[in-house]
Amino acid sequence: MIQSHRNPQTRYTDAAIPACAGVGLRSQHYLDALHSPIRTGWLEVHSENYFGKGGAPLSYLEAIRADYPLSLHGVGMSLGSVDELDGRHLRQLKDLIARIEPGLVSEHLAWSSFAGRYLNDLAPVPYTDTALAHVAARVSRVQDCLGRQILLENPSSYLEYRFSTYRETEFLNQLAKQTGCGILLDVNNAYLSCQNHGWDASAYLHDIDAARVAEIHLAGHSQNPAGEGGVLIDTHDGPVCEAVWQLYQTAIRIMGRRPTLIEWDADLPAWRLLIDEAGRADTYLRQGYAQAA
C-alpha cells in the first residue's frame, strides 16, 4: 500500500484550497509529493487521468490526498459542444469527487467533441446568446449532478468568430451569474488570447467579475512562428513568462489573494524547480496582501 510517511492514518481533512500557491501534479512527481521535504500549499490533478478503476494512479492520489489539499481540473466535459453531455463521463467525475473530496472542481469554457468524436483539445465557443444559453444549461446540469459548484476556466484561443456578440469576459461573467459557477482565471490564457486577438489584457482583468474568481492558473507558453508576430500557443512546457507574472500582479491587486496554481504539464522540471516557481507566486501574493493591508 502506498502511504504518506507524514500522516499515514488520517486524511488531511481540511479540503479547502488555501489562498496560496500550489502546483499541478503529474505522475512523474508522485514520489516527490509524498516524500520530499520541499512542499507546496496544495495540488491539482487532471480529473480524467483518474477515471481508471484502480492501480497506481488512484493509489497515489489517495495517499497524496491524505497529505495535501487537492483540486480536480477537468479537460473533457465539453461544455460548449452541441453533443449531449456524456453521462458516463459525468458519473466518473462524480465518483472521483466522492473518493477524493477535492477542495475545488473546475472545467473549461470550451468544446472538445462533435458527433461522439473527441478532439483531445479545447476548441473555442462563439460568444453568442445561443451559445450562452446552451453552455449555461449544461453548467447547471453538471452542477446539479455533482451537487456542488464548479469553476469555469477562460480559454486560450487562436481564433475568433465574426458572429460573436459578447466579449469573452462578459460571456464568462454572464455564465457565472446565471449558473452560480465560479471563475478560474487563467492569467496565461488571458495574456495569450489578448496577444493573439489584439485585446487589452489589463481591461480583460478589470472586466472579469472579481468576486467570482476562486482560483488562478499560471503557466508557460510558446510561440508559433506562423504569420506576422506569430501566435502564442498554450503549451504548459516551461516557466511562466515575465509578461504573465506582471499581469498576475495586476490580477492580485484587482482581486486580492486567490489560490494560484503553476501548471507545468510537459518537459517537466525537477520538483524543486516547480516548487520554486510556486514560491514566486507566493511572494507576489504576500506583497499584494501587504499593500492591501
Partner: peptide, 9 residues
C-alpha cells in the same frame, strides 16, 4: 479510430 471519449484510458 479517433477517440470516442474525453477520457483517453
Amino acid at each position: 479510430r479517433p477517440p470516442k471519449s474525453a477520457c483517453l484510458l
